[in-house]
Amino acid sequence: MTMDTPATGNTRASKASQGNLIASVGRTDDFELTDEERSEIEHEMGHYENPRAASIGALKIVQKRRGWISDGAVIAISDVLGIPSSDIEGVATFYSLIFRQPVGRHVILVCDSSSCFLTGHDELRDAISSELGINLGQTTGDDRFTMLPVCCLGACDRGPALMINEDLHGPVEPGDVSALLERYS
């Protein structure tokens, strides 16, 4: 029984990241920010009183292009913002939409809050599970999908609801799952 937001990634990814805790900071994985990423982060910094405030924005900027946040990305962001990498790590591990492990090309966020629970979340989750052969917190072997739980999506009138990447879908009946997932290759 795990109470935390399930870790993202399949067994392979979990194993790969075991030795990668921030204790190993100093290793850079040869990670470099692109010029575009760097300038977007610097632009973000201008919106707040100090650079630290851009840390979540910076993580999102990098993740948008790379899919997830590697150790090297944590260090590179800490260099740009001029704050300790342990602080960036603290932020990266706190927020559920920042992934510290590789995820699939498409991330499915399934709402498991009360209204969706009442309108069929369990059946929907099980249908996705059996279609893809993964549970919440896991990634398919072909790296196509990762399935995660999410708080009420503000679409309770359309429950059970889910998001795939930036698209909101609801109500999604178990019978709709197959065709819906087809749209994400």
């Binding site: 851009a54 999102k60 603290g90 932020v91 706190f94």
Partner: peptide
């Protein structure tokens, strides 16, 4: 006015946690 978008976690809605999050800290 500037739009700040979050990165998940219900607790960000608690107003002082929200301020910490806005400042780029754990919420």
């Amino acid at each position: 006015i500037f739009l700040h978008t979050g990165a998940g976690r219900y607790i960000c809605g608690e107003e002082t946690a929200l301020i910490n999050s806005l400042e780029g800290r754990r919420a």
